[in-house]
Nucleic acid binder design. Structure first.
Lengths: 193, 193, 193, 193
DNA sequence: TATGAATGAGAGTTCATTCAT
DNA sequence: TATGAATGAACTCTCATTCAT
């Protein structure tokens, strides 16, 4: 009796993440999601209006978890470069310790869902408001970072991270703390003045 | 009349690229591909064993075209950094002038097809054999580039390029020659010793 | 406190009538009925064995209400034609002042439920026993009405009434007292010798 | 090789009519329609965009057949009453010799489809243009028929016919030529001045 | 007595693939 | 060689009904 209600909601989200991570949005039919979640197919629709809503909701929750992980131990007091390294290595470590979360987020970005989603965000300038946005804007103001459009700074910093994480997860490279540090440093090199 | 027939093959490949680029692998049903290619649905199966084969074949052909574009004007005689810049800016320019090709390649990478495909390639070390592989290996040998696993050099160099290209194509940033040069320079910064 | 509970029973019947009248038997799911009745879905099954029983029960109750309305002010003392006119105009007026009841009854008749229901009734000759049945049999006996099978007299008298009521309710015609009188008179013309 | 192509289209329409006539729009699922038509479920969608289109198309075709049947032997030369009788008895005879067509048309009228359909027609005044519309307007002009809105003349003439046809088909009455003539005469009585 | 979360069969529809022509 | 009508398995989603609380 210990377990609270929204058990099933969680189970459905978890099953969705696993299946999409493993097989892509294709081959993650509702029937399989339900089966893996240990619920009936119809039950999905008590918690999520339809499959699209399920998929977007899951993405939002993962993003929240990622942000929470990154903000842990992050403090304005540290020197600029250290803060950058904290965030970049943090993100990379989160990805490689949460391969399913990573794969899901990647799949999401490369799908009609993801494009529409990002479009909204960019139009609303909400990207500039996150931890990273603040950091980068500050860096440019202090002339520590190259003076480039914010979007490009993101690309330079995270493009490699995502790429590296994918290769680690697929087993094409084996990361360790030293390597992670060197990768983050290389990202720093590409951004710094 | 020499190559009269392969008309239809080309048309099918072109239609597939367009549809996948515009709508994703979902919503690129064979019926639509056939319609846009101006052939009957059954005709697809004369040229390609099944849809998977069509998709992989198309990817291979696009890759070949990309490589051809990059090798144009590329010569071992130029200084190392110049050769690097040639390849990186060349890739970025190809992507933003060929948005459908870019989108297709991206879709492909983020799909079960793409993973299996790359796995083969990495295991066979064929990645090391391309223009880029040669360049990077040479750069490490000459201690111009950071001493990192080849895979990671790829990630550092191309992760940002792909990311930037995507944002340009989605309209989130407007690239011009100056910007492209600066982005390539930033990539160089992240790779060089 | 005598009939405190049947609150919910009433609410369910009322909700069913409204929804079926508005949207047809389709699109009147139990969940919606429950919601509009302000009860839980499961509660429906305390009062009605299943949905079919609910639907038939509601029909019976509506019929009872219609008969009650018609018998009001009806008396054997008045001349024959007057009694006929009383019933026919009464029915038409009831329908157009109770559009939901009308629509429900119509829906019911045109459904598998309705056919089985009427079959029972006709086989048991119960149709002959209502107010109308008595009136018509009397009319034939007195050679005021055409000598036709009772069923046909019903069709001649009520076929037009139902049709007219439907058109009024759908807004295709706007009835008033004069028009109602003329319609009833036309029905009389078709029945009288 | 004798049978032409649209075999399957016909079979689907026929199966739909039979199933709807027998069981109502409920219980006429696509799977059953396909099975009875001797085609695969997917085949329905080669001929009809969706189930709604199938249902409306079938209605339109039945209506065309009914009109064709009525116009047969109809001529402006005959006296007015004779023409009226021709149409009314013709309709009734068509209905009782085509019980499935009749049931389908009835089901259709009493459904969301039918209401929307008729609304269009009345708004466009197309009802006035049919054989019946012309006849009734002429009758009013010549002061042979009661001066009532056209819609009501339809109700008075056809309300009973539909009702009688239903009862015959359900087996509640057994019509013959004499009875049909008397019913049509009664309709005439209700319309004539 | 009343609840409403859960069920799962079945609805309409899509689409990769086949095969008679 | 090319066609495109036909297939039928699989998809997302609905809903009458049940049952633990």
């Amino acid at each position: 009796m210990e377990e609270s209600k929204p058990d099933k909601r969680e189970a459905i989200l978890q099953a969705t993440m696993e299946l999409v991570a493993e097989h892509g949005f294709h081959d993650a039919p509702c029937s399989l999601i339900a089966e893996r979640a240990g619920v009936a197919a119809g039950t999905i629709y008590r918690y999520f209006e339809n499959k699209d809503v399920l998929i977007v909701t899951l993405y939002r929750e993962l993003e929240t978890r990622i942000n929470a992980a990154l903000e842990e131990g992050y403090t304005q007091e540290k020197p600029f470069r250290e803060r950058f390294m904290h965030l970049v290595t943090g993100l990379l470590k989160f990805f490689i310790t949460h391969p399913q979360e990573f794969k899901y987020v990647e799949q999401f970005h490369n799908s009609p869902y993801g494009v529409a989603f990002r479009r909204d965000r960019i139009i609303n300038h909400s990207e500039e408001c996150g931890v990273y946005g603040e950091l980068f804007k500050q860096g440019m103001a202090q002339q520590v970072l190259k003076d480039l459009p914010l979007v490009l700074l993101f690309d330079l910093a995270f493009g490699p991270i995502v790429s590296v994480a994918r290769n680690h997860i697929l087993g094409f490279i084996q990361l360790d703390d030293v390597l992670i540090e060197r990768i983050a440093a290389a990202c720093w090199d590409s951004l710094k003045c």
